[in-house]
C-alpha cells in the first residue's frame, strides 16, 4: 500500500527511499522545493487530510535540521512522515499555515525552540512558551540543560555521593596497588 503510493509519487517528486516502520506508517525524505506540491497532492488526491504533527529533529553532527510532517489518512489508517532537511546554519522552512491553519502554532514553536524561520507564518515571531528568553533556542542539541540549571539554580547543601568502586579502592587499597 505505502509502497504503491511511493512508487506512484516518486516519478514526479524528488523522494528518498521509503522507510517502512509498520504496515500503516512509513517515512520518506522529500526535497524542500517539492514539499508544498507533495503536501497538496497527498491532501487532495490521496486522502492524507490530517496533519498529525509537525516537528523538528536536530542532527547537529550532520549540520542539519529535519522537519517531520506527519500526514495521516484517517479513512485508510495510514500515516506518512515527510522528512525535509534544512541547513542548520541558516534554517528556513516554508510555511504551510494556508494549507493547515493549525500549522501556524507548530511553526511558531519551531521558531522559538529550534530557531527555524518560517517567513509569512502568522505571529511566528511572537513568544509562544518562553518569556524573555535570551539564550539560544533551547531545543537545539547544543543547548546544555544541565549547565543551564547549574547556572540558574543552586544545589542542595550537604549532598555528597560515592562511587562504590572508587570508594572501595580508597578504603581497601589506599596505595592504589595493582
Amino acid at each position: 500500500m505505502m509502497r504503491d503510493l511511493h512508487d506512484h509519487l516518486k516519478t514526479r517528486y524528488r523522494l528518498g527511499d521509503l522507510a517502512e516502520r509498520r504496515a500503516n506508517l512509513a517515512f520518506v525524505d522529500v526535497a524542500r522545493a517539492d514539499l508544498r506540491a507533495l503536501l497538496v497532492e497527498l491532501r487532495d488526491v490521496h486522502g492524507f487530510t490530517h496533519l498529525s504533527l509537525l516537528t523538528a529533529v536536530d542532527w547537529i553532527e550532520e549540520g542539519r535540521f529535519q522537519l517531520t510532517y506527519l500526514m495521516n489518512n484517517r479513512t485508510a489508517n495510514r500515516s506518512l512522515g515527510l522528512r525535509v532537511f534544512l541547513d542548520r546554519a541558516d534554517p528556513v522552512g516554508d510555511t504551510i499555515h494556508d494549507l493547515w491553519p493549525t500549522a501556524a502554532t507548530y511553526q511558531r514553536e519551531l521558531r522559538e525552540m529550534f530557531g527555524i524561520a518560517f517567513p509569512g507564518s502568522p505571529r511566528v515571531d511572537e513568544e509562544f512558551i518562553l518569556e524573555g528568553w535570551t539564550d539560544m533556542p533551547p531545543y537545539r542539541r547544543d543547548f546544555d540543560t544541565l549547565a543551564y540549571s547549574q547556572q540558574t539554580f543552586s544545589d542542595r547543601e550537604g549532598r555528597e555521593t560515592h562511587d562504590p568502586r572508587a570508594h572501595m579502592a580508597k578504603k581497601l587499597n589506599p596505595e592504589g596497588q595493582r
Binding site: 487530510t49 490530517h50 496533519l51 498529525s52 494549507l99 493547515w100 491553519p101 493549525t102
Partner: peptide, 9 residues
C-alpha cells in the same frame, strides 16, 4: 469543515 484544517480529533 474546520476539523481537518485545525487538526480537530
Amino acid at each position: 469543515a474546520l476539523f481537518e484544517p485545525y487538526g480537530v480529533t
